[in-house]
Amino acid sequence: MSKPRFAMYWAAACGGCEIAVLNIDEKVLELDAHFDVAFWPAAMDVKYKDVEAMEDQSILVTLFNGSIRTDENEHLARLLRRKSKLLVAFGSCANEGCIPGLANLSPREQIFERAYTSPSTENPDRIRPQPACQVAEGTLTLPPLQPVVRTLDQVVEVDYHVPGCPPESHQIAAVLDVLIAVVKGEAQLPPKGAVLGAGNSTVCDECPRKRDVKRIDKLARIQELPPLATDVCLLEQGLMCAGPATRSGCNSRCPNVGAPCIGCYGAAPDVLDQGARLMTAIASVVEAQEPEDIDRVLDGLPDPAGTFYRFGLAHSLLRANRAALAEKP
């Protein structure tokens, strides 16, 4: 009997999700034992036209990482949706937009300006990439950038969500175990729309640091603070931590080693907007009552949108800056 097919694709992503899958070590052999890898650009050479030639629904499961930034990303999202029985939004980019989604704070012109003509870029002729370019050998094409970054579930229907930037390896292994058990007929598929490979609480809930009375009269970056206590809540010590609004599942990996949570597992369960919930949490604990005193504390957060929506911007209630949203494709 032939094995069911597996695919993994990266859209607007960094490649970290692929590395995270390889970080499951010998478990990847089990993946190979139970699945026929049909398409995985980071691991093997299969052309888009080969995927187009596959029968619809002939791939059992596709792990789709990356957000939808270009026309090519959208084409592949629609193609893989058609070819796959189960489409999994894998990693923060596919689920919430992640770091590529931060570009939604700027219209495309500003993005190009920054990328190709800022002082740190040597580009005296101010060359910009073009959708099509004539060279001696023929026409070269690049997929155009869309006005804003979208998440996978804003473009096609998604069956499951695996959060994280990247998803933790032990969580990926647990998700693979479920899939393998389903293939063997030993388990039922989880309900459609389920979040797999994550906890059902907040990072704070998993964090071993002691929380006392949250009152902060100062917010600062880690290098501006005195050495921090190793067993006390980072937020209480003046470090902006996204733990209160972020889904658990990572075993509070960052706070464990003295770095604040930056929110990569996305909004906690039943939280509609991760950034808004963080604003609620942070503003509640600021120890100030007069507007000037409040502002002095808040000045310690020079980039609130980028801090609160570092991972969740593209999937937030507002999704993008007004000017970027208003752009025509």
Partner: peptide, 12 residues
């Protein structure tokens, strides 16, 4: 006050 700072970055 915090929301106003954030909304400014969204162009509101």
């Amino acid at each position: 006050r915090l929301l106003q700072r954030t909304l400014a970055q969204f162009g509101i």
